[in-house]
Design a protein around this nucleic acid. Sequence first.
DNA 1: TGCATTGATAACTCGCGCTTATCGAGATGA
DNA 2: TCATCTCGATAAGCGCGAGTTATCAATGCA
Lengths: 303, 303
Amino acid sequence: MHGGSELELRDVEVFLALADELHFGRTAERLHITQARVSQVIRKLERSTGATLFERTTRTVRLTPIGRRLRDDLAHARDLFQDALVRANCSARGVGAALRVGVLGAMGHEIRPLIEEFKSRHDGGEVQLIESRLSDPFGLVRADEVDAQILWLPVQETDLIVGPVVMTERRVLAVPADSELAVLDSVTWEQLDDHLVADLGSPAPPYWVEALTPRRTPNGRLVKRGPTARTLQEVLALVADGKVVSPLPQHSTRYFPYPGITYVPLRDAPSTQWALVWSSTTDRSGVVRAFARVAEELGSPSA
Amino acid sequence: MHGGSELELRDVEVFLALADELHFGRTAERLHITQARVSQVIRKLERSTGATLFERTTRTVRLTPIGRRLRDDLAHARDLFQDALVRANCSARGVGAALRVGVLGAMGHEIRPLIEEFKSRHDGGEVQLIESRLSDPFGLVRADEVDAQILWLPVQETDLIVGPVVMTERRVLAVPADSELAVLDSVTWEQLDDHLVADLGSPAPPYWVEALTPRRTPNGRLVKRGPTARTLQEVLALVADGKVVSPLPQHSTRYFPYPGITYVPLRDAPSTQWALVWSSTTDRSGVVRAFARVAEELGSPSA
DNA sequence: TGCATTGATAACTCGCGCTTATCGAGATGA
DNA sequence: TCATCTCGATAAGCGCGAGTTATCAATGCA
């Protein structure tokens, strides 16, 4: 017998996240709360069910059979819950209420399976793709001109929520067709020596730009930045014009077979992860999360 | 775009209650919150879905089609949600974890259909009936010796939650077999004149005792109280002994065919409603609410 | 036209959700 | 076996949002 603190959805989210991560610290990080809070919520849940849901030592966290069952049950209930809200939202906004998703370049084509799946699951759900500028990757979400945005990671903005990864792919280097690099089977960062890469201009934050085009080569040599390009088309124009070379996600090769451009695999570049990102203050978090959930279930195809 | 106040289960309960009552004031009363709060929660929900869920004037509240659909969806999700917790609770506590329900007299037999339905819906759910004293109707719940208690209404205790009505029935008057009242087809309160009724003793609160045995007749004459009886058996013994007469719920006639007692229908008594009641600070509100939900769906048979 | 009822809204307050700070238990390695 | 690191539990305190009180405007009814 004690104060009747009711269980809330927020608590369930914590439980489900922990059941997924099996790690208090990472769970906390993922939900943008503290590890202490995760601990408290789980304790509360175990109190109210009367069951031990996780076997935990300081080194391992494991679901008990009851915990596993509860995870399945609650995940299902939670899904229905969100679906109900999404349905209301869709019927309310009608046809003109497409989910507005910001994309860079051709990503809109790449995530077509995701969009199709979302539309088939949520009757009446529409998705509108809006291209955003490389130079201002967070502008559209922040201005509420899109409900969500697909961006390469990392994204470290306190006002943005980073959702599931929707695609993972290797990188290529776009080089002028007449460059000496164009004839190679593959290149390394080191070979960017003496070549300029396009600058994306503000307000794109440096850490984000450098995730695609590092400031230094593995050996520590500075990569020189050249003229500014605000969109992918501008980047491609500069490359075709022989002004710069530019690391790009691999899928670009399929969509932009520019005459003057050759794409060469970047051998030593880690693969690029594209994630769905949205504002923590969005009005339509229900629909956005539903979209995110579909993405999560589909997994992230490696293109 | 605004502060991302997430939707919580508490809010859904308010919505579902309002969808049921279609009246802000009554909804507030039922949930033990203020009418203002109901208004705020509904506004929040309508904001976050973007839909008008209720058509309302100051005189009428009506569900919109979207609201109706949302009610069905959310009610279903909410049920799954609670079921998940109940299941965890049942597996955790195992066989020795019966839901302990306090009853007065033979109510335990009367609600057998309810108990069967509960057991069939919640695998492993057991119900243990515990008889409580008429003289201390709230004692067992407060001492956490039962998880819930079945009592006649009204129950006005700030620390207790009044759940669904499980039965509605007429009243009879138990009279000694040799009383002049025993030969009548029915009696009225007025005819209690010159007869004593049993006193239930403390700590039973007067308002609750008087719901069964009013202090005054409709014409305003005082009903005299006689010797104290703490349990139903004691009441019956006093009646059989010719000491008192006693208004009782009708089902008593089926279970206590005492040789010395005759039951006469009470013509002008309003029917008695039996409701499930539990402590607002119970540890097992999940299971209790699940039981309450089954009761709600079965409705209250008029015996 | 007053009177009663009902839902909406503004302003305030206090409990609880969440934080920061710290601890003890294991694991790892020299 | 001692120093160090990681990880989860816990205590104490803070701040915001859930819920309150007070009041208003609209509507129905005599």
